[in-house]
């Protein structure tokens, strides 16, 4: 039995982050605060930059899909609303330090940062570094979760935000077919 592909859901407003602005609640897709440079609640600008850079190297399009605001929002969310993959992986809430320590270790252990500013490094330049961190802790990766574990986590996060949304399904040309759409439910 084959089922014909159904009409795709439109991507507009599919999965949203909730922001309180001037007493009003604004719902934005994760890409919007990224575009509009909305301030982070938990991450520093440098941490967000490192997060975007490494995520983009692992999952192309993660940056513009809003990876840094997605994670920032999740880290600020109450335990009951936590949707991070870390929930499954034995890292108890709050998980801020997991990311913070790993990003610091990334900054210290990536040799490119000795030659360039973080903002000048591109995702494509990180291929060898990512290959290494899949297998083992790179040299100078200290006081942080194991690099392969962080890779797995960040890869999952980046896939969530890039492909796990209605927009992401559209990108793959497959139907979303929600019973109850995530639209309006917010991300946190």
């Amino acid at each position: 039995m084959n089922i014909n592909r159904r009409k795709f859901h439109k991507a507009s407003g599919a999965v949203l982050l909730a922001y309180a602005v001037g007493g009003d609640l604004l719902l934005l897709s994760p890409a919007k605060p990224q575009e509009q440079k909305v301030p982070y609640q938990i991450l520093t600008e440098e941490e967000a930059g490192l997060l975007e850079l490494l995520s983009e190297a692992i999952v192309p399009d993660a940056q513009k899909s809003g990876i840094s605001h997605y994670i920032d929002h999740q880290l600020a969310a109450p335990k009951a609303d936590n949707m991070l993959i870390l929930k499954y992986l034995g890292v108890p809430h709050p998980q801020v330090n997991f990311y913070r320590q790993a990003l610091l270790a990334f900054k210290k252990s990536c040799p490119l940062f000795q030659k360039k500013n973080i903002t000048d490094v591109t995702a494509s330049e990180l291929q060898d570094y990512v290959k290494l961190m899949i297998q083992q802790n790179p040299p100078d990766w200290h006081d942080a979760p194991p690099a392969p574990f962080f890779y797995f986590t960040l890869r999952s996060d980046a896939i969530d935000v890039t492909y796990g949304t209605m927009e992401g399904f559209s990108k793959l040309n497959i139907p979303y077919m929600a019973h109850i759409e995530p639209a309006g439910k917010g991300w946190a």
């Binding site: 999965v15 335990k79 009951a80 609303d81 936590n82 949707m83 991070l84 993959i85 929930k87 499954y88 809430h93 969530d160 796990g164 949304t165 979303y176 077919m177 929600a178 019973h179 109850i180 759409e181 995530p182 439910k185 991300w187």
Partner: peptide
């Protein structure tokens, strides 16, 4: 039933915390 949002992300809210 209205909490059961069709999303791999939202599904995580149903799991142990």
């Amino acid at each position: 039933l209205s909490d059961l949002v069709s999303s791999g992300l939202h599904s995580r809210k149903l799991k142990w915390f």
